[in-house]
Design a protein around this nucleic acid. Structure first.
Lengths: 209, 209
DNA sequence: CGGCGACTGTACCGGAGGTACAGTGACCGG
DNA sequence: CCGGTCACTGTACCTCCGGTACAGTCGCCG
């Protein structure tokens, strides 16, 4: 149960493996990341890897769960701060979007990339379980944003006819697509600008041009 | 030079390999597609594959070039039809977007997926040449849409303050992101709905709510 | 002192990509 | 008819990687 003193270093070996794997996978894909390089980086043996994860798929699963949870925490925090600065659900959301755009802009390199998208394109490598995690994560964002838009629409009747579920999905699409473009073009700020554009659309929908 | 009679079947072996590879890669990623299954599908020997492509990377390159060109042709046709139905650059574009949304909606399964995105997340597997093709393709779309928006903005001064390059990039982001979401959620119509939302945004920018 | 958690080491397997190279049959120009 | 080239086939071989199977080790905890 590890508790206070880890056998090596400060973090547990398992966590170091996950960290190394995440960095490597986002840089060069899951398939191109070998177990060999991970165990070399973590300074353990190959057997050590299979002690922690029964196969590469289990590594992917653990990684995805950690990633989804971390993303959720970050965005929860951002929108909570947006709401703290503003009572109104619309303006709180708009502030949140601006904070998010600023956050993505301040990242050193391009946004680390989105594991959800990365795994979507490599999905056949994985099992049903992993695809379900991915699906649930995306649906959770739809639900969260949809609930927000319902509250907003009650106060600000939409000026443009839109489906609120689609508007919620658009946030995910813009972020995923923005990351992809950002990486492809090697333009780190592209994602931030796309988020800002999405924000302008939300404004137009509920406040008008 | 093959000319009239191919040695086997009607299409050339090389084309059959590309067709098989495209289907397989979009279904289950590049890495998970083995040369073995391609040569089995094309009914040739392993040596035959390496006769046509010196390695898997050359296959990816040929595939990407073919894909990018085909996409360009399809969208050229769609926006040409939009313009044919309407003299105005804005309304021609809006018609084109509707045609595009209809096209993606009518596809049997989800949109076949976007090789550009698929390859972006597996980029380290490939060389500079392939990344350049990808980059150029995306930049070409930015340029094309940007030129269109310049023409539109001359006639319809934007009601919402937006950068026209960003607005052009948004089309690519929405399509890439929409495909990813569509695949992840297994909702074939999601992409079409996102394109329709983008169309609503374009309307709002240039015509107002 | 005994057991368990966190490993290490060794050996082995199959599949995938890739190389090397010799051979073969159809067709084509001279 | 002959030689060459195109489009392959077949065989052999190599490496890397994921994965399996264990047997052994070392430190800590009850």
């Amino acid at each position: 149960m590890s508790s206070l003193l880890a056998t090596r270093k400060d973090s547990t070996t398992r966590d170091r493996l996950l960290d190394l794997a995440e960095t490597a996978i986002l840089q060069k894909s899951f398939a191109a990341t070998s177990i060999e390089e991970l165990v070399a980086g973590a300074e353990i043996s190959r057997s050590g890897f299979f002690y922690h994860f029964k196969d590469k798929g289990q590594l992917a699963k653990a990684l995805l769960l950690r990633y989804v949870e971390r993303d959720r925490a970050i965005l929860d925090d951002i929108f909570a701060r947006g709401d703290a600065l503003n009572d109104d659900p619309l303006h709180g959301f708009l502030v949140g979007l601006r904070l998010f755009a600023e956050m993505t802009a301040s990242l050193p390199e391009a946004y680390p990339g989105c594991l959800v998208a990365a795994i979507c394109y490599q999905e056949q490598l994985f099992d049903r379980e992993i695809r379900a995690i991915n699906r649930d994560a995306v649906l959770a964002w739809r639900t969260r944003f949809r609930a927000r838009f319902d509250r907003i629409a009650a106060l600000y009747p939409p000026r443009i006819e839109v489906d609120l579920d689609d508007l919620a999905d658009m946030a995910s699409a813009i972020v995923d697509g923005g990351i992809t473009l950002s990486k492809t073009l090697r333009e780190p700020l592209l994602l931030s600008r796309q988020v800002t554009l999405y924000r302008a659309f939300i404004r137009a929908v509920f406040l008008g041009g």
